[in-house]
């Protein structure tokens, strides 16, 4: 098939960027989108132009590295699909595809399509864990977890940390990512002791980088793991409850 690409090129974090157009006259519909960029890069190198920088690694939709706005949608037009799992058969022959990096204040562009998503790690740092130092665990079967709970936790834990939710959200909110991480741990029995502090700290950290959620629901549609915005409701509820619970815990200390 024949495709035209309009790709955002930006030499560095402080450089001004612009779109550049490239013609890809002969590509196969069986190609993945990243293979299309690979092919473009081979052509660029041949023509002594610097290749397009972009993040990718597993190419199986699990590492969360790949990150592109394709025709105005995070990860492109296929639902529940990361960029690396998007195949060209989803596009119309002869069409023009515009590719842009994630845009959010907390995701500064490093180069071309590559952005710095460290802020998501900082949210985890502030509470996205269960404090269980190595060696201190009881036998695994001592902690019973109802199947439904394990399944729900797994639904949330499936998040790959790609940041598409932020990219897609009109407010650059990281609510879906944070909600998924919080729900994963807050649903499980192991996560209960730190539940209220966790949600408080993670939400506070999230808000120091990202926008606020006004329930557009765009994130859910962009999410390659189709994490449900129901988890956002859960996050909000836990945050509300945490105000009381933490106060109570603190007052117990006198």
């Amino acid at each position: 098939m024949h495709l035209k690409l309009r790709v955002w090129r930006q030499a560095g974090p402080t450089a001004t960027g612009a779109f550049e157009s490239y013609d890809m006259p002969e590509v196969s519909a069986e190609m993945s989108f990243l293979e299309l960029i690979d092919e473009l890069n081979e052509k660029l190198i041949e023509a002594n132009k610097e290749p397009v920088a972009f993040d990718h690694d597993c190419r199986e939709g699990i590492c969360g590295s790949c990150s592109m706005m394709i025709n105005g949608q995070a990860h492109g037009p296929s639902r529940g699909t990361a960029t690396c799992q998007l195949f060209l058969r989803k596009f119309v022959d002869g069409s023009e595809i515009t590719v842009e990096p994630w845009r959010a204040g907390a995701f500064p562009v490093i180069r071309d399509l590559s952005t710095d998503r460290t802020a998501l790690d900082h949210i985890i740092e502030s509470g996205g864990f269960i404090s269980a130092p190595t060696g201190s665990a009881p036998d695994a079967n001592l902690i019973l977890v109802p199947k439904e709970v394990a399944d729900a936790a797994m639904d949330a834990a499936a998040c790959i940390g790609c940041g598409a939710c932020v990219a897609a959200c009109p407010n650059s909110a990281a609510q879906l990512f944070t909600a998924a991480k919080v729900a994963h741990l807050n649903l499980l029995p192991q996560g209960q002791p730190e539940r209220w502090n966790r949600v408080q700290n993670m939400v506070d950290t999230m808000e120091s980088y990202f926008g606020s959620c006004t329930n557009h629901g765009e994130c859910e549609k962009a999410c390659p793991k189709e994490i449900s915005i129901d988890f956002i409701a859960l996050l909000n509820k836990d945050y509300l409850k945490a105000q009381w619970k933490n106060r109570k815990l603190e007052s117990q200390r006198g």
Partner: peptide, 17 residues
Amino acid sequence: NQRARPVKYQSHREYVA
């Protein structure tokens, strides 16, 4: 929310939800 995205998307956004 405005501060959270100081540089807007430079191409047309396609909203789904």
